[in-house]
Design a protein around this nucleic acid. Structure first.
Lengths: 118, 118
DNA sequence: GCTTTATATCTACAATGTAGAGTATTTAAG
DNA sequence: CTTAAATACTCTACATTGTAGATATAAAGC
């Protein structure tokens, strides 16, 4: 077991989480929209698909091509799903970060000038 | 304002958090030890210092060289501190991840075979 | 001086992040 | 039909971040 535990990149994590959240409806474009909507992160088309492909190569996600079902034309969608391996990697990343955050308090001046800690 | 908001890498976040946690005592070797102890992550010396230097170039941390104070020999330590900019970047990263995690539940089989969600 | 201990710098390469032009596929309009 | 529009994915290329280990510094102790 365990083939030299690697770490997920920051963007990889975002994409994995987006796929999970989208569930049945997770494919390239929808992931891209979600990132734009939820975390206000605009990513290029290339950035997105490249990363999806790499995640698949690493076994973090699996994919299947859907039937051509578009309302107004359009190419067939490629749906993604996070594998068990992907979920475990995500969990590990989350736990590592949570451990490090534990006990740490920031104290920066926020936009409106009010000092907060978090 | 805002010079094309970039994102922190995964390892960069870890290092920044380690520095915050170590407070006055944050320097290369201590950060390395912390990562090993807290998140069980062994990083090479080169990986660590390279990243610290890059973070400094980006203005995420600042450094000062301490006096030679070693008990048993040794080169002077280079102490690091996370700048306001670094703290804000950290906060942004944290919030983005939290937003994405919100509403997502994993369901992978854990080591001991017990199904959990988190 | 020479060895030991503690810490940092340098050089190099691999992996991940990012962009945008180009391609494919299907529907609607002319 | 033929072309335009819509939707989604593939390809190529380069920038940034991750990672390693050898090497250099510096002081303490003998």
């Amino acid at each position: 077991m365990s083939e030299k535990e690697k770490f997920l990149g920051e963007f990889e994590q975002c994409i994995l989480l987006s796929i999970l959240r989208l569930g049945e409806n997770a494919y390239g474009s929808s992931v891209r929209e979600l990132l734009s909507d939820v975390v206000n992160r605009e990513v290029s088309i290339g950035a997105l698909y490249t990363t999806l492909e790499r995640l698949e190569t690493k076994g973090m996600v699996s994919s299947r091509v859907g039937e051509a079902t578009a309302q107004r034309g359009g190419r067939a969608k490629k749906y993604f799903e996070v594998t068990a391996k992907g979920q475990q990697a995500l969990k590990r990343s989350k736990q590592a970060l949570e451990k490090l955050w534990k006990g740490v308090a920031l104290s920066v001046v926020i936009n409106d000038g009010i000092r907060q800690s978090c």
